[in-house]
């Protein structure tokens, strides 16, 4: 893979982020409501409100003052102070919530990619077989269900009913726990939300991978591989799978944005202290700086996921490396 290819993709990624920063600024200023109205306190005096607006820089014109200030501090990594969290730096608030989300989505994605691609490849390779009929129906069901619909029965059966797993949260409060015990506790809390996220994603990925394999299966080079007398499993593994994977790389990267957005519902159902929950709280409080930071983080991670996809794609497909 040429350095030129990587550089070109990197420049594209950075330009996209610059555009996102500008859009991010405009978007939230266009929303109705304002921070002082969101406090819903009828006893605030106009003088106090004016003083607060001056303190947060909201009295200055949006353009150029607020935008320039915003762009400069964003570039410096200073995303301002949260309004809801009483002046705590936004970066800290977001960082605290990012960990749990990365954990939840990361494990869910990893499981879904492995299981979903495997399931889809198997189903598509033997289209109409038992595996395909069962797997494809289940995939469709999970694909069409939002995470909270998958999550609720999981909680009702495995947490409330059988009591195998905790109903919500990330840790059991109180008590001194050793590192091993703490890890086990975290694991127990992870099982249900990860299952909910992974099931939905497995549905999506296996359906897409299935159609990709079905399409690949009728390619001439698959006939060539069969004509070579290679074992069926080898034809699938080393000829059909690598080619069917190509469209999947892009799909998974694009999907990442929706996953973070979709995880909002999963986090609410499981009361998971991640970015999703934080987003809802910030929206509720019209916490502009916090919202901007969350949106920026999501946008940047999607851009970088796509950048990573381009690199992986270039690695998998020699035709795009030029």
């Amino acid at each position: 893979m040429s350095a030129h290819y990587i550089l070109r993709k990197l420049v594209q990624a950075i330009l996209t982020i610059v555009a996102i920063v500008a859009l991010n600024f405009v978007l939230f200023r266009m929303m109705p409501g304002s921070p002082e109205r969101a406090t819903k306190n009828p006893h605030l005096t106009p003088e106090f409100i004016a003083a607060e607006r001056a303190k947060w820089g909201l009295d200055k014109p949006l353009f150029p003052d607020q935008l320039v200030a915003f762009a400069i501090s964003t570039a410096q990594g200073d995303l301002g102070y949260s309004i809801k969290y009483r002046g705590q730096p936004v970066v800290e608030v977001v960082a605290d919530a990012a960990g749990p989300t990365v954990l939840l989505i990361g494990i869910g994605e990893a499981i879904a990619i492995v299981v979903g691609l495997w399931l889809g490849a198997r189903s598509g390779w033997r289209r109409g077989g038992v595996m395909d009929r069962i797997g494809n129906s289940l995939s469709l069901i999970f694909y069409s269900m939002p995470y909270f619909v998958i999550g609720m029965p999981l909680i009702i059966i495995f947490a409330a009913g059988l009591g195998w797993f905790p109903t919500s949260g990330m840790t059991t409060p109180g008590g001194d726990k050793g590192p091993a015990e703490a890890l086990f506790d975290l694991g127990r809390h992870l099982v249900l939300p990860v299952t909910a996220v992974a099931l939905g994603l497995i549905g999506a990925y296996s359906i897409l991978m299935r159609s990709s394999i079905v399409e690949t299966r009728s390619e001439d080079y698959i006939t060539t591989a069969r004509a070579k007398g290679l074992p069926d499993a080898l034809v699938l593994r080393s000829h059909a799978f690598p080619n069917a994977l190509l469209p999947m790389v892009t799909l998974i990267a694009i999907n990442l944005g929706y996953v973070v957005a979709g995880a909002i519902t999963a986090e609410i159902v499981f009361n998971w202290p991640g970015l999703g929950l934080l987003t809802v709280q910030a929206l509720d409080a019209r916490d502009y700086p916090l919202l901007q930071a969350i949106f920026l983080l999501i946008a940047v991670s999607v851009v970088f996921a796509n950048f990573a996809a381009d690199i992986v794609y270039g690695y998998l497909d020699p035709r795009v490396r030029a």
Partner: peptide, 16 residues
């Protein structure tokens, strides 16, 4: 029995 297929572009695996 081996076969030389027509239009070798598609008969060869593009990623290998």
């Amino acid at each position: 029995i081996s076969i030389v297929f027509q239009g070798a572009m598609n008969a060869l695996n593009p990623v290998r």
